[in-house]
Amino acid sequence: MGNHTTVTTFLLWGFSSFPELQNLLFAVIFLFHVTILLANVSIMVAIKLSHSLHTPMYIFLFALSLSETCTTMVIIPRMLVDLLSESKTISLLQCATQMFFFFGLGANNCFILSAMSYDCYTAIHNPLQYPILMTHKICFQFIMASCVLGFLVSLCIVIIIFSLSFCNSNVIQHFFCDIAPVVSLACNCTFFQKVVLLAFTAFVLVGSFILIMVSYVFILFLVVKMPSAKGRYKTFSTCSSHFTVVFIHYGFACFVYLRPKNSDSFGEDTLLALSYTILTPLLNPIIYSLRNREMQTALKKEFGNVIRFFPQMINKRTQKI
């Protein structure tokens, strides 16, 4: 077996291969991060303050925006610090914590998207009984179940990975503690453990995606039976935002986590990871706000209140002076 040095800390290599671009990357990623926070917080505030948006679809959207915001907070601040610092070390405990929250929130996003597809199907299939079938209590139960199941799966993944022994190399070829780059550093990972990790990942991605596709197959059957072309268009427009988000979310995630891995693919995964850690959380609120009139109205009202608030505050301060 030879002599091994036990690893106690990791080095997040990330974009260290491009030292001349790190300042530019910091500026771009920081701008995206601020935009993500503003966009998702605007969506959540609009849903919270507008009583017309207190419906199951927007409750799920609120939960998705909150989960996406937390996901970016787990990854991006650490990435920004590493881009500016020479020391990019992270302890085993910090790495395990980051992985736990990232995959727990990521799995939560997948299950919430599944619940949203079921909500679309229920609204189309039973419009008269919809208020009874999808009450606020049932929505919160779906959200809590998604959260608990997501973090249980993430806990299992973290326990398996960090029960392994890491020796010699401690360089993670990524900007955060992702599954494949960390597992590649283990010196005693068996084929069975790799299969179990793949099974957990497939359960989250493939399992939730199958539920979404089953819902959309039933929705398609219902739409085809509609006699009115206007009714079909309205139904498609109602579900189009959700379907677009699903396509983007699962397209990137499945390509990264379900394809065969080797050390040469980690560089590609690092670039692709930017898509689902930065682009997806940014595109979700944009898609829902651009394709939804109710959301547009609520956002305009919210921004109007903000614009009116600042002059009033300045006038009050001026009068006091």
Rank of each mutant, 00 (worst) to 15 (best):
F309E: 08
F192T: 13
L205P: 06
F101A: 01
L198R: 13
T122W: 02
T71E: 03
P131N: 12
S184E: 15
V153E: 04
L49S: 10
T69M: 06
G150D: 07
T9F: 11
A96E: 05
I76A: 01
F142T: 02
F102E: 03
A115P: 06
I159L: 09
K301E: 15
P281C: 03
L31V: 06
V7E: 01
L211H: 04
C147A: 13
M73C: 03
L271S: 05
T280E: 11
F310E: 02
G104E: 03
Y121A: 02
E86C: 00
E68T: 08
V7G: 01
S87V: 12
S228T: 14
L53G: 05
Q296S: 02
H242D: 06
K300W: 12
V153P: 00
E86N: 12
A27I: 12
T277G: 07
A46P: 05
M213Q: 12
I90M: 15
F10L: 11
V246P: 01
C110M: 08
H174L: 08
V81C: 01
Y118C: 07
L49W: 13
S67R: 06
T238C: 12
V183D: 08
K301L: 09
I210Q: 00
H125K: 14
D119Y: 02
K48W: 14
P19K: 06
S85D: 14
I36H: 03
N305Q: 10
F103A: 00
E86P: 00
S163V: 04
Y216P: 01
N40P: 01
A27D: 13
V45I: 09
N262E: 06
A273Y: 13
S52A: 12
I314K: 11
L205D: 09
C239D: 14
S240I: 14
L113V: 00
A39N: 07
L272S: 05
L272W: 09
F15S: 04
F176D: 10
P227K: 09
G304S: 08
F166R: 04
T297L: 11
F303R: 10
I157V: 10
F162V: 05
F191L: 14
L80E: 07
L38P: 02
T97F: 07
T297N: 11
V34K: 06
P260W: 10
V204E: 09
N23P: 05
K261M: 13
G14A: 03
L24W: 15
S208P: 01
F30L: 14
F26M: 02
S240W: 08
S240C: 12
M57V: 08
A145W: 09
P19T: 10
R78G: 13
I157H: 00
Y288R: 00
V171N: 06
L211E: 15
L211W: 09
I76G: 01
V214I: 13
T297D: 11
A46D: 02
F60S: 08
M134R: 15
C156E: 08
E294C: 03
F247W: 12
Y130T: 11
H174S: 14
F200V: 01
L155C: 05
N168F: 05
S65L: 03
V182T: 15
G231I: 00
A115S: 10
A229G: 05
A180I: 07
R291Q: 12
N126I: 01
L53W: 08
K301D: 14
K225V: 07
L21W: 14
I159Q: 07
